[in-house]
């Protein structure tokens, strides 16, 4: 009897442990491979680990194209995040005042730039940027990145304002607060969490863009993903791995910010 119970317990214990181990390998191994690749020397077939290690590719970042590309991407992502949130905040708030079926139509419209294939979106946007005389410039790529980012942030704010009780706004207005005062003293303080989330999401949308940057930047705007794509295709694995890790680290930090925001708003599980 006791041994049967022990066998059952063991069986229950093995599968979750195996599943947990599989999850750990699946989530962490790819990043470990990148890390090894970024410092490995003479990693020839069929070696499981590199013969020697060097930090040369890491030390060369500052002077290499990767460093300049990382700076370009940081500026692009920051500009995109701030612009998109400033635009999406009032859009989301306005959309939340809609009732069905209009709300669904509006949500579908706002979701379009998010779901549209970036390459197809870029093909249409390129003409507009050329007509504005901005072809192949940082400004054109920034505007293009804002298109999907505003879509994401508007959807997020639609959800936030849709679930929000508007009584405090009404109370402030009835006590004589101006529109600006309602934003300054009622809305912005209570929306700090969602605004942080939206900034992080928009930063990531721009940070990871490849196709839009390629089409709109025309190869002249060397953002980090463009540089990494070129290195991977050229077979320069060590530099490509360094670039890939450079792409991952700020993204992880942005996600940590998002998680910190989520804990305050309980939008995501811990």
């Amino acid at each position: 009897m006791n041994s049967t119970r022990a066998t059952h317990a063991a069986r229950r214990g093995v599968w979750p442990t195996l599943a947990l181990a599989a999850l750990a390998v699946s989530s962490l191994l790819p990043l470990l491979v990148l890390l090894l690749q970024s410092v490995g020397v003479s990693w020839r077939w069929p070696l499981l680990l590199p013969e020697a290690y060097t930090t040369i590719a890491w030390r060369a970042i500052a002077g290499a194209a990767l460093g300049a590309a990382a700076l370009t991407s940081t500026l692009l992502a920051l500009a995109t995040a701030i612009t998109s949130v400033l635009i999406a905040l009032p859009v989301g708030r306005a959309l939340a005042t809609l009732r069905t079926p209009w709300r669904h139509v509006a949500a579908a419209l706002v979701f379009l730039p998010v779901a549209a294939p970036p390459i197809a979106l870029g093909a249409g946007l390129q003409v507009a940027t050329l007509q504005l005389g901005l072809g192949g410039t940082f400004a054109a790529v920034w505007m293009a990145h804002c298109v999907p980012a505003i879509g994401y942030a508007s959807l997020l704010f639609l959800g936030v304002f849709g679930a929000r009780d508007a009584h405090d706004e009404e109370a402030a207005r009835s006590l004589g607060a101006s529109r600006a005062q309602v934003w300054r003293f009622v809305l912005l303080p209570t929306l700090r969490g969602p605004i942080g989330d939206a900034l992080a999401i928009c930063f990531l949308v721009s940070w990871a863009q490849v196709a839009l940057t390629l089409v709109i930047g025309g190869g002249a705007v060397r953002a980090l993903p463009i540089e990494v794509l070129a290195l991977v295709r050229a077979g320069q694995d060590r530099e490509a791995a360094v670039g890939a890790l450079l792409l991952v680290v700020p993204a992880m930090l942005a996600l940590s910010a998002l998680r910190a925001g989520a804990r305050r708003t309980t939008a995501l599980p811990a």
Binding site: L20, S27, P30, L34, A208, V228, A244, A251
Partner: peptide, 28 residues
């Protein structure tokens, strides 16, 4: 605790860009 660890592990690669996923797949 194990469930919480599993949740952290499962969502850990969330912000990894598509490009990095593809480059790593190539190396693997």
């Amino acid at each position: 605790r194990t469930d919480r660890a599993a949740r952290v592990l499962a969502t850990f690669p969330l912000p990894v860009p598509h490009l990095v996923a593809a480059a790593t797949a190539l190396m693997l």
